[in-house]
Design a protein around this nucleic acid. Structure first.
Lengths: 182, 182, 182, 182
DNA sequence: CATGAATGAGGTTTCATTCAT
DNA sequence: CATGAATGAAACCTCATTCAT
């Protein structure tokens, strides 16, 4: 009985995460709560029970992908020369930020509702990027946090353009990272 | 006589512009209309009389500075080698976008309410930057619009940081412009 | 000098009446005051000086047309057989009501502000219609006032339809007038 | 349990319908939403939840009576000769429109907010009247919709007169229906 | 633990009316 | 007498959030 309850709760939670993922992609992270709960087929109360703050939901939705991206740093630096590893990882990171509509703006917005997300995000990403930076040679006046921040900004989706546009701008920035050392 | 009345109207209009400038700086360009009118000491109707669309107000607040920035391109390219002129102008542009809180986000938001601002902005800035690009040698896969867009993104104010932070990131991007494809 | 002032005032008043006539026809009697004054090329204050209450303006506008319509009865009955004169006059009256969007409601509302209009309306129209009715043969249980009222209602403009629609319905009613006598 | 909640909701909904009915009768169908919700003792949000469009509320208020009137056509044509059935039904329809304040004006107003009401209304009434028209002989240039519209107009309540006045005018119109073109 | 109806603050926009010039 | 800028009440609609069931 208690198990059944837990199973139901789990199912609701999964439905919410799935729905939120889809809605965030189309309407951004500030989409109305109702849009998410309707799609998940649950009441709004259920959303608020599981995710009292909006960031809680955003974090939960993106957690796996954030973790996967952070974790990709190890294999990349094991299999590639440092510069290549860094470039590849930034590309992966760019794709993450560019394709998860709303992530970029949530990271950059001053909104207190996204504070927890920002903290979580940088906590995971900074160590991963730091070890890549340590191996590769980049200009010393730029930190991991700087890169994370800059790439997130440059990856902001642009209405008329596809995700390649952000990658293009990021490539210029990455070139600049090497350039300054010369 | 009619002059006197116009003086009153002018005073209100100035108060509105002043208030909007201040409010935009603290609360962004999407701040509630009431916040602006209260600060200006006028009724909401007065705001809507002068600025029916939100963009109209944003444009009015920033117009002089936008125009001044665009106009600075000529003297800069007359007095400096092309590369220096370009760099200096981008610095000036960075300062504009970075210090006018809300401008950066208004440019990047897909919000229809800011469409007129975006058009006005790019109409002024693109020609100015285009002639600087033509003289300086930069990678050919980047247009004036790309630079305007990227710098606006990188200049997004960051809560904990001063305006130098944006300049720092922009400097890296500008270094990347000089590279071919690395 | 005083004459010049009076001439100017008269011109403004005429412009207001002309503008109100046009605006009432398209936007109804509750159209924004600004719409009328803009069309007249005067300030709103001028409107309020001449017509402190909205009904004052409605009355002034409609009085002219009512007088013109009532006056048309004489010539029509002089130049046509009685039945034709009646039909033609009702057509003219139909056109009056159909194009003045607020006349019917002003006549029908219990509003004391429109009392003067109602009195004037029936004072002018009833004799005109009465002499036309007297010559033509219609059922005796219907008075001039009944016809004026019914036609005004049937002439209410219908969004999707042209003025012919009202004329069509009125034609049926007019047929009913003859029919009842048989 | 869920039943209890639904009972509350039902009570609110009934209160809204009751309040709307009363308010429509005194202030017309365009009365402010707040006037209705205050009278019902609920928040505005509750009104918008149940009736997103103004027409939805108007329809809900009048639905039963509209349906009852439409349904009366069958029995009438079963029990009476065609002409009598048509006349009786139009009388019944006249009473409906004349006594439900606001219905007549909502039907006639061009307001987009009442579009759905008009559609609902004509969807129900047209078939009922059509079958009565088919049996009775009336002039062919008049459709069911024309009659519904004309009668609604002629039934507009007149301050100084009772409901018989509208019936009188409608009777003339109905007589006109039997004529060809006179 | 889930539900979803209810709330009501909050934002926008429109206009009738006043009144200083 | 004319002007039209200013006012601010009023209406609309939307959601985030609560809480009784």
């Amino acid at each position: 009985m208690a198990e059944r309850r837990r199973a139901d709760a789990r199912r609701n939670l999964d439905a919410l995460l799935e729905a939120a993922k889809a809605v965030f992609a189309t309407s951004g992270v500030d989409a109305p709560a109702k849009e998410i709960t309707d799609r998940a087929g649950v009441g709004v109360g259920t959303l608020y029970r599981h995710f009292p703050q909006r960031s809680d939901l955003v974090i939960a939705v993106l957690e796996r992908e954030i973790d996967a991206c952070a974790a990709a740093g190890g294999p990349l630096s094991a299999d590639n020369p440092p510069e290549v590893a860094l470039t590849r990882w930034i590309q992966r990171y760019t794709d993450l930020v560019a394709t998860k509509a709303g992530l970029a703006s949530a990271l950059q917005s001053g909104d207190a509702a996204h504070q927890a997300l920002r903290e979580h995000f940088y906590e995971r990403m900074s160590p991963a990027l730091d070890s890549l930076i340590g191996a590769a040679k980049i200009r010393p006046d730029i930190s991991a946090a700087d890169i994370l921040h800059a790439v997130a900004l440059l990856s902001h989706p642009v209405p008329g353009e596809g995700p390649d546009y952000g990658r293009h701008l990021v490539a210029v920035f990455v070139d600049g990272l090497r350039n300054g050392t010369g």
